[in-house]
Design a protein around this nucleic acid. Structure first.
Lengths: 308, 308
DNA sequence: CGATTGCATTTTTCGTCATAAAAAGCCAAA
DNA sequence: TTTGGCTTTTTATGACGAAAAATGCAATCG
C-alpha cells in the first residue's frame, strides 16, 4: 500500500509519541488535535492513523476514532541497532551531506548530476538543496549549478562548534533580558529524568542526540533574544550532520543528564551566575573529551563521541 | 533589448567596480578574469559588457575586447537619492520581506497566493523563498504551504542583534585560534580610508551599509572559527532587512569609519585585548544611539539610524 | 608565441502544459 | 465535539520546446 509520503512521515511521528510515552495505551487520538500539532490538515493524519492501525499499533473503533493499542513492554528499541533509516528526503539529505563531507562529490555540481546520482525528481532535489542552504553549506551559483561550501568538513569542526557554544550559551543566561520560565524548566527536568530512567538505553541514537540539543535550545530561549537561539539551532544542525557519522556513547549520557539536571536546579534557585558557570563547565567538558578523538578522526571514522 | 537577467546583474556588478575605483578609465576588462571573479562563464560576462558598451560606460575595440571609457568625474551618485531599485529577484525579495514585516501578509500562505501576489514563475518564487529560508524567517510546512516566522519584526530586534554582536565580535578577537591576517587588515584599511575620503558622500546607502557589514565580517573571519563568521553574516542579513527601511545617517559614518580604523591599528600593533575592547565599545555605541529611536520606531518608520 | 577575443556548439536550466497525487476544507452523522 | 466521507484546492510530476549559460576552438593581437 503506497501511502503518501506525508502520511508516512506523520505515522512515524505518531509512533514516536507512543514510544516516548507522550501517548499511552488506551489513549484516544483526536484527529484535529494531532493535525494542529503537526501543522497539517486532518487528511494525512487520518491516513497515518490507518497505516498504524494496520501495523497493529493503533486500534480503530467504529465512529469513535483511533486508540493506542496495548503494547507489551517488550516492544523496546534495540539499543545496539543504531542504524539510520529515517525517511526519504531525510535519507537523501544525509547521503548528500555524507558524500560532501567525505569529498565524494565535487564542490560545484549541476542539478542534473545530483538528480542522476540520487535519482530524484526536480521537487525532491529542490527540497534537499533547500535544506542544505538553510544549514549553510550549499548555495546557488550565479549562473547554472550549485556550490558546496567547505564548512565543518575538518576534524576541528567539533572543537570550533564547542568553542562557539561555550561563548554564547553561558552568556545567554547572563543577558539582561534573561527570564526564567518555569514551564520550560519543568518540562526539561521531566525529559532529563525520563532519559536517566529509561530512554538512554532504549531510544535510538538519533533521538538521544535530538533530546540533548533540545535541552540546550530550550534553555537559551529564556534569554529572550531570538538571535542567540537561532545561532545555537544552526550550529546544532551542523553538529548533527557530523555526529550522524559517529556512534553515541550511551554511558556518557548518564553523567550528561545529571549535569543538565544540576543546571536546571541552579536556575530554579535563581543562582544565575552559578548556572552560567556550570553550563560553561558542562560544555568545556564535552569539548575536552572530544578533542583527542577528533584529532585522530580521519583514521577511524566511527569513533565513540558524546552527544551533549 | 531584453538581455538575460544574469547578464544584467553582472553588468551592474561591473559598473560597481568602476564606481568604486577598482577599475579606472582605460583599463582592459578580461572576460575570463571577470567570469572567474563572479563565478560564472564567459557568456553572461560578455553580454554584460555589451550592455555597458551600449550604455556608454565601456568601449569595445575590434578583436581586443572591452575597455573602460573616460568618465567625467561628475558621474557622481546623488547622495540624497537613496531609492532602492537593485534588481529583479532582489526586489521581489525585499517586497516580500517588507510585506511580512509590516504584517501585510498572513503567517501561512500557499505558493499560489505568493505567485499571484508578486506575479512570479515557479522558479522565481523558489529563489525568493530559498533566500527567506536561508535568512531564517520562512519554512516549508509539512503539507502544502509556507510559514513565515516572527523573527525581528519588533523594534527591539535591533537591540537584540547588537547585544548578540557585542558578545561574539569582541570574543572572536580573543579566541585562541585568532590569527592576524595582514592582507585583510590592509584591504579593510584601504576601504575605510576611501570611505572617509569620497565614498560616504557618493555611494548609495545600500552600498554603505554593505561596506560596514563587510568590515565586521572580515575581521571576525580572522578568528578562524567559521561558526563565528557564519553567525555574524546571518544576523547582518537580518539587520539589512530592517535597515533597508530606514535612511542612513551619513554624518555618523565618519565617526564610525574612524573607529574602524582605530580597531585596525590596535590589531596591527598586536594589542589584541585593546582591540577587543574597542570593538565592544564601538558596538555598544551604535546600540546606545539606536535604542531611543527604536523605542518610538513604530510611529516614525523612516527615522535616521546609523549603519555600523 | 602565449594569451585573449569572438563566435559556434553543447549543456543546462526554465517555462508551460496536461495529468496525477495529495492536502485542505466542508458537512452530515454519531 | 469529533469522526468519516466527500469535494475543492493546491502542489507534484513529467515532457518538450525555448532560453540561457557553459564550453570549445579558430582567429587575432601584443
Amino acid at each position: 500500500m503506497p501511502a503518501s509520503p506525508l502520511a508516512r512521515n506523520i505515522a512515524s511521528q505518531i509512533s514516536l509519541l507512543v514510544t516516548t510515552g507522550e501517548l499511552s495505551s488506551g489513549d484516544h487520538l483526536r484527529t484535529q488535535h494531532l493535525a494542529d500539532k503537526f501543522g497539517v490538515s486532518r487528511s494525512p493524519v487520518r491516513e497515518a492513523m490507518q497505516i498504524l492501525a494496520e501495523e497493529g499499533l493503533l486500534e480503530q473503533k467504529e465512529n469513535r476514532g483511533f486508540f493506542v493499542k496495548d503494547v507489551p513492554e517488550s516492544g523496546i528499541i534495540e539499543p545496539i541497532n543504531d542504524e539510520p533509516k529515517p525517511f526519504e528526503v531525510e535519507n537523501d539529505y544525509q547521503r548528500l551531506a555524507e558524500d560532501w563531507l567525505m569529498d565524494r562529490i565535487p564542490a560545484e555540481v549541476t542539478e542534473g548530476m545530483l538528480r542522476e546520482r540520487y535519482d530524484l525528481t526536480k521537487a525532491q532535489l529542490s527540497d534537499m538543496l533547500m535544506r542544505a542552504v538553510r544549514e549553510g553549506w550549499a548555495e546557488r551559483k550565479q549562473g547554472y549549478g550549485w556550490r558546496f561550501l567547505p564548512v565543518a568538513k575538518t576534524p576541528e569542526a567539533f572543537e570550533q562548534i564547542y568553542r562557539f557554544r561555550m561563548l554564547i550559551e553561558p552568556a545567554a543566561i547572563l543577558e539582561p533580558s534573561f527570564k526564567l520560565d518555569r514551564k520550560i524548566i519543568e518540562e526539561q527536568r521531566r525529559l532529563q529524568q525520563r532519559m536517566l530512567e529509561t530512554d538512554i538505553m532504549r531510544l535510538p541514537a538519533e533521538r538521544l542526540i535530538h533530546n540533548g540539543s533540545i535541552f540546550h535550545e530550550e534553555l537559551i530561549k529564556m534569554s529572550n533574544n531570538p538571535f542567540f537561539h537561532l545561532s545555537l539551532v544552526r550550529v546544532n544542525q551542523m553538529r548533527r550532520l557530523l555526529e550522524y557519522r559517529s556512534r553515541v556513547d550511551r554511558n556518557r549520557l548518564f553523567t550528561q543528564c545529571e549535569e543538565h539536571l544540576a543546571i536546571l536546579d541552579l536556575l530554579e534557585r535563581g543562582e544565575i551566575l552559578e548556572a552560567s558557570y556550570a553550563m560553561r563547565k558542562h560544555l568545556s567538558g564535552a569539548l575536552a573529551r572530544k578533542s583527542p578523538i577528533a584529532r585522530s578522526w580521519s583514521q577511524h571514522a566511527h569513533e565513540k563521541i558524546p552527544a551533549s
